[in-house]
């Protein structure tokens, strides 16, 4: 356990398992063209089947790290290694299978397309016909509880439902790795709790790896088995925390002393990161 370490340059242990990590971020810098140093010497292992949260204040580069993982932009220095080769890019897909799903902070739906059209998009872009997509799109919508809403337009849906559509779109290619960039930050607390529970349930069933960016201590402790706390200016890993509470986690966990103590540790780490 390295959860009390304060070495910003440390290499994470990749969770408790000894299996090789799914992805290994090694010494990555990201400098934007305006000179902003978003990330400085970032080292991070992403373990297989892990639910990893990146927690940190605004400007700590957690979204940048997520985007680099998704292949949106190149690191200025360092490299991102993948176990078993880089994830499939769009052109290399086999019937729409893709290794990475991405959920943005906003639902990011196409307003001119129906729910079906939006979830179908990743498959359409990889050349899967509409007829062949009816089943996978239906399954993805079923997973997020939106069966029957295929013909609805985004503007007819509430914020929580739009986010569910966005998640369904990320799931439709059956990715191994799901990247989520503060997906529930704009939702009300009741909806957020519900989506947290539903996401955890899906994660347990599907056995994915999830990297979840958040600025909420409570959300990160509730969801993840490892929290990477990041500090800003320049963005770097500040501390790592294991959350060893067993799954499934539910309302009991949310009100337990164990949860509270994890939250305190995470909160202390976050304060440390803010003042670092």
């Amino acid at each position: 356990m390295s959860d009390t370490g304060l070495n910003p340059d440390m290499v994470s242990s990749g969770g408790a398992s000894a299996a090789p990590p799914l992805s290994r971020i090694q010494g990555v810098d990201k400098v934007f063209s305006n000179g902003t140093v978003a990330l400085k010497n970032l080292n991070l292992d992403i373990g297989r089947h892990e639910f990893l949260s990146l927690l940190g204040p605004s400007g700590c580069g957690k979204s940048t790290a997520l985007r680099l993982l998704a292949g949106l932009g190149e690191p200025s220095r360092g490299e991102i290694r993948w176990e078993g080769g880089a994830p499939a890019t769009g052109s290399a897909t086999d019937k729409g299978h893709r290794d990475i799903g991405f959920v943005f902070q906003e639902p990011t739906l196409m307003p001119w397309a129906t729910v079906f059209g939006n979830v179908y998009l990743p498959l359409k872009l990889s050349g899967v016909s509409k007829a062949e997509s009816v089943i996978p799109v239906g399954e993805a919508l079923e997973m997020v509880g939106l069966t029957g809403f295929e013909k609805a337009y985004p503007r007819e849906l509430s914020g929580g439902m739009k986010m569910r559509v966005s998640i369904a779109r990320a799931l439709v290619t059956r990715p191994k790795l799901l990247l989520m960039d503060e997906p529930f930050a704009a939702l009300d607390e009741i909806t957020r709790f519900k989506l947290n529970n539903d996401l955890l349930e899906l994660w347990r069933q599907q056995n994915w790896t999830v990297v979840f960016v958040t600025h909420s201590v409570f959300e990160s402790v509730y969801l993840s088995n490892r929290i990477v706390v990041m500090a800003a200016r320049p963005g770097r890993v500040y501390e790592e925390l294991e959350v060893d509470a067993p799954y499934p986690r539910g309302e009991d966990f949310r009100t337990s002393a164990d949860y509270a103590s994890h939250c305190r540790r995470a909160s202390d780490a976050l304060h440390g990161a803010i003042n670092a």
């Binding site: 997973m143 997020v144 519900k194």
Partner: peptide
């Protein structure tokens, strides 16, 4: 296999 139905959300049909 599924997330629960989004009963917390409301569906706003076209007026």
């Amino acid at each position: 296999m599924t997330m629960s139905r989004p009963d917390d959300d409301e569906f706003i049909p076209l007026p």
